[in-house]
Design a protein around this nucleic acid. Structure first.
Lengths: 139, 139
DNA sequence: CGGCATCCACCGGGATACTG
DNA sequence: CAGTATCCCGGTGGATGCCG
């Protein structure tokens, strides 16, 4: 990638839609699951608890469309379909892992911050979050 | 609700909601923007093009609630409010950067994969994606 | 078994107007 | 300037049923 580019919004416009894919309700779990090796449809469905088969289908289609997973059909009876990460998918898996690690390390802090925030908001509608002295507004 | 799987789904359940925050429509852009230094409300609104003031408010509130940004009110007239990343917010910024880097590096591959996929889907409804020989389905 | 199609509830998010 | 409040639309995603 070209370093030294400059505009924040520029790369953000590229990142945003991808983060939207990644960050949707099921993609991450599926990617992490498949990072472990190829799985078939109902296998995934069982492991990703709570997912409807509709959403799992859509998720896998999206991943396939993005070139992140390979879909392999075995024309047997009953039919069998395997999904596995492509090289691209595996390369995605790494930064996702990093983010997952961050989430895992900090979700305690986050939920504490949330509870503190909710407490402030709940006890008093007019609780000062952080008040700066007037006059130091100039930068 | 089931459990007792590998540790994959475990950490995923922690990651998913956070990725949901990060991956929502505006959070990343705001975080990256604030990674550059503190900004005031309308300053952010101007830089993040397309965001409504409602969504910007909600986004910043969410980030504040998660302990990722500090909100500082200057009780001046006209009022002024600064937003800046907390230490936690800055620590998040790194893996987000990594994911952004990945997106930036691979969005070409992705859009190519998407076009190829759409072409396959468009030309023929019954285009075989990848067919494995029957008989090798056993694992 | 692995889908796709349909219907429908919910809520994310935009536009607009009003307040301190 | 920095919000809050209200309305409303479209997309996301769950439930169900049918099909190869």
């Amino acid at each position: 990638m070209e370093q030294g580019h400059t505009d924040v919004t520029d790369s953000c416009r590229v990142v945003a839609p991808i983060l939207n894919r990644i960050g949707d309700k099921w993609t991450v779990q599926v990617v992490r699951l498949l990072g472990d090796g190829p799985r078939r449809f109902n296998e995934i469905k069982r492991m990703v608890d709570g997912v409807s088969q509709r959403m799992l289908t859509l998720t896998l289609r999206g991943l396939e469309r993005d070139g992140l997973v390979n879909r392999t059909v075995f024309p047997t009876i009953p039919p069998r379909v395997d999904y596995e990460l492509t090289d691209l998918g595996r390369s995605l898996w790494l930064p996702v892992q990093a983010l997952g690690l961050w989430a895992y390390e900090h979700h305690g802090e986050i939920s504490r911050a949330q509870k503190a925030f909710d407490k402030r908001a709940g006890l008093s509608e007019e609780q000062p979050r952080k008040i700066a002295a007037a006059g130091m507004a100039g930068r």
